[in-house]
Structure formats: structure tokens, C-alpha cells
């Protein structure tokens, strides 16, 4: 492509292929600058009037879960019997917070493994809350009972209690919260027993370390 030099430098203007390059005069430079500024101004003006200020919030969903390291936001919802439960009432204990639904095939596929992992760690002081979303309390209670769940099953069918602080797009969502109420990890996939035990044990390991005892 660059076998020959740009025409404007290589040869004088020829008929047909003009390439007269004169020095741009000061007025041309001024006009050019004015037009350039005008174009940018026009873009800004059009953008301001077309609602572009809302562009750039990115992602498919804009409201996201709290971050690892944040204090887990509190919520109050009910268990399957209608009793009120608050997240903050478990402060001081490591909490495994799971959002699930019996309608969700991956949640069902992992259910026995999750229960097995919890059964291992419950004696060590772990508390697990399984918040069922988008289904009736009866469905959640029936499924959990039939499959031997020993964790506390909470239900929030329309996400009115937890949705604001915990917008859930993935089922299951696992959030691991330490004794101080700080989120230590978030797992957005279905787990097997081994993986679940590994994630949850980290809350217990920290709790047994001297530093955490002091806090």
C-alpha cells in the first residue's frame, strides 16, 4: 500500500487528480476552530436534550448486591409460619444467607448437598437462613420439609422485604456473613458439599482466631 508516497507530496497537481496543498490561511484556521467547537457544542446540547445523562449505568441490571467487605444490610421478613425474623438478630454468629426457590432447578439440584454441608457445620455454630423468593410460603415449606432442611427457611414471595437491599438475579445466591455482620464472600453458582463447606468454614476459622474474638 505504501509502495508510493502520498500524492500530495510526491507530485505536482495533475489534471483530474488535484492535490493542491496550499498553506491554510489564518481565516481558514479560525473557521475550522469555530466549526469544531460548534460541533462539540451541538453534541453536548443534543445529548442534554435526549436523556443521555442516563447512559452509562452499564450492565443488564443496575441495582446490585452489597459488596464483599460491606456490612450486610439488615432486613426483616417472615419464616414459613409467619413469625418475624430479622437478619440483625443473628449478629454475633456466622451466617450463611441463601436466596433460593424450589422452582429453580439448580437450587433443587444442590439442595441435598447444601443441607449436608449445613449439617456438618451447624454444630460448630454456623447459622443458615434460606430465603425463598418468588413462590408461595407453602411451596417453600413443603419442599424444604420433604427434603429434610434443618436450616431456617424464610419466605419473601414478592421480594418486598429483602429486594431493596438484596436484588437477586441469580438463583441460588449464597452470601456468607461473619460474626460482625460483614459480608465475607458471595457465591453466584450452585455448589456441591465440598465447596459449600469450604466457603462456610472460612467464617468459622476467622471466628476462632484471636483477632475476631476481640471484635
Amino acid at each position: 500500500m505504501a509502495e508510493f508516497e502520498p500524492a500530495s507530496r510526491a507530485e505536482p497537481p495533475r489534471s483530474g487528480s488535484e492535490a493542491a496543498h496550499q498553506r491554510p490561511r489564518a481565516t481558514s484556521i479560525v473557521i475550522g476552530l469555530v466549526v469544531a467547537v460548534a460541533i462539540i457544542a451541538a453534541a453536548v446540547a443534543v445529548g442534554a436534550n435526549s436523556g443521555w445523562s442516563s447512559i452509562g449505568h452499564g450492565g443488564i441490571n443496575q441495582r446490585l448486591l452489597p459488596k464483599v467487605g460491606d456490612v450486610a444490610p439488615d432486613f426483616e421478613t417472615t419464616d414459613v409460619y409467619g413469625n418475624s425474623v430479622r437478619l440483625s438478630q443473628f449478629r454475633g454468629q456466622p451466617v450463611w444467607l441463601m436466596f433460593w426457590g424450589s422452582w429453580c432447578p439448580p437450587c433443587r439440584a444442590e439442595f441435598p448437598d447444601i443441607q449436608a454441608a449445613y449439617a456438618q457445620l451447624e454444630p460448630k455454630g454456623l447459622r443458615m437462613l434460606g430465603v425463598s423468593l418468588r413462590e408461595s410460603p407453602l411451596d417453600a415449606a413443603t419442599y424444604a420439609a420433604r427434603n429434610g432442611a434443618t436450616f431456617l427457611v424464610l419466605t419473601d414471595p414478592d421480594e418486598s422485604d429483602t429486594g431493596a437491599a438484596y436484588p437477586i438475579y441469580n438463583f441460588p445466591t449464597h452470601i456468607f456473613i461473619d460474626r460482625d455482620g460483614v459480608i465475607r464472600s458471595i457465591v453466584l453458582e450452585d455448589m456441591d458439599t465440598e465447596q459449600a463447606v469450604a466457603e462456610a468454614s472460612r467464617l468459622l476459622d476467622d471466628a476462632s482466631s484471636p483477632g475476631a474474638d476481640a471484635g
Partner: peptide, 14 residues
């Protein structure tokens, strides 16, 4: 041994 379907927190598949 294990199949994982991992998502980002905005709900998009990772």
C-alpha cells in the same frame, strides 16, 4: 465431577 453455571452479580452469565 461438577458442573457450574456461574453468574455475575448483575445476572449475566459469566
Amino acid at each position: 465431577n461438577d458442573f457450574s453455571e456461574i453468574y455475575r452479580e448483575d445476572g449475566s452469565p459469566l
